[in-house]
Design a protein around this nucleic acid. Sequence first.
DNA 1: ACCTCCTTACTCGTTGACGAGTATACGTCT
DNA 2: AGACGTATACTCGTCAACGAGTAAGGAGGT
Lengths: 214, 214
Amino acid sequence: MARRKVGNLMALAVLSVLVQRPMHPYEMASMLRARGKEADMGIKWGSLYTVVRNMEKHGLIEAVETVRQGARPERTIYRITDDGRAEMVDWVRELISVPERERTRFQAGLSVLAALAPDEVERLLRQRLALLEEETDDKRAAHERHSGEMPRLFLIENEYELALLDAELTWVRALLDELGAGTFAGIEVWRRFHETGELPAELAEMAERGSVKD
Amino acid sequence: MARRKVGNLMALAVLSVLVQRPMHPYEMASMLRARGKEADMGIKWGSLYTVVRNMEKHGLIEAVETVRQGARPERTIYRITDDGRAEMVDWVRELISVPERERTRFQAGLSVLAALAPDEVERLLRQRLALLEEETDDKRAAHERHSGEMPRLFLIENEYELALLDAELTWVRALLDELGAGTFAGIEVWRRFHETGELPAELAEMAERGSVKD
DNA sequence: ACCTCCTTACTCGTTGACGAGTATACGTCT
DNA sequence: AGACGTATACTCGTCAACGAGTAAGGAGGT
């Protein structure tokens, strides 16, 4: 974030549409929406004008003209600069070549899983599984529809997403199996802890030491 | 974020240590650091005091006492409230049961992959693969070391992370194979586009329509 | 002829995240 | 005994992100 002049990924999205032709912000939004980029990147439209203004300030884009249609608000049309083009390419290079650990909220949840009883966890995971399956089916269907009409290059991010979704599905199913069958190591201690309300001596000591994980 | 009184996941981390016993902020930080939670959740220490103040304001925690040791700055000791306990449990429930689409930066990169030439992509992916392998090996080693001394319940988030890392590794390797062998569908059009600098008619039209993806 | 609702096209204010800074105490190496 | 680093324990200012608000044009119904 310190390195990029404009850190928000929406800036990359903006660059990627302006590289085709100059546009005003609202049109960028429509383009991105039409292409489904809002789904691929985590785009919040509230940030659009802030980001565009910042990009102009840093010379990644520049205003070409401002036109007014009737009594509508003015529209400023922007075009990408050479700096902008360079920034885009360099940014993509980095995103592809440098893996960055990004924890999901699910992982955060898992890391405090002991706050819930095993039976409840089983129930919640089943809910997750159902939602996950639905989402995956939708995504896969959409992907198959599109792969008839578009080159694979433009759908590659969906392939990746589907691969990760599959991996999560598999993992959750496996965990559910173990919980259901009672083969999850330590499930008895875990269950008792939640029934009696107090945690067994071994765990208490571990919690206090805490530093086992270095 | 609107629903949670304090949206930052660091708040969950704070709750999870305060549930054991009252503590002052700096000690929370040490605890979390010692347990490796900073890795599991994406924790930035700059936010700690802001978050703690917010949590107090919203009644999730409350100050017990402020002590002073010698000439050191005052330390305020906080304890978790009943509301805090309830919030924690409810939060974990949500994190576990409701899958939330979170796009990675890599996915964002993939969605503008056309900005780079196929040969460069191949090179960059190989770099990614190497870093990814290194990271995975480290993580797996650490996990195996710990699984001797700690109950599985407290390592479950690492299992999940490793599963996702494996999935990414597999996917990247497969893509690299296709790029290397030249069997990636449309790679010729892609390569020519970068050699000549202009995109073929079919793609130009598609870019303009744009809306194929709805 | 009027009403209503959706789309177009932004503006603005709030909030919270976070980096960087600060200052003292303590241990330890020389 | 002095110096140097490291741990303790925060404070503050900035800045981007975003939700919610605004307001006119146009389409379609009655």
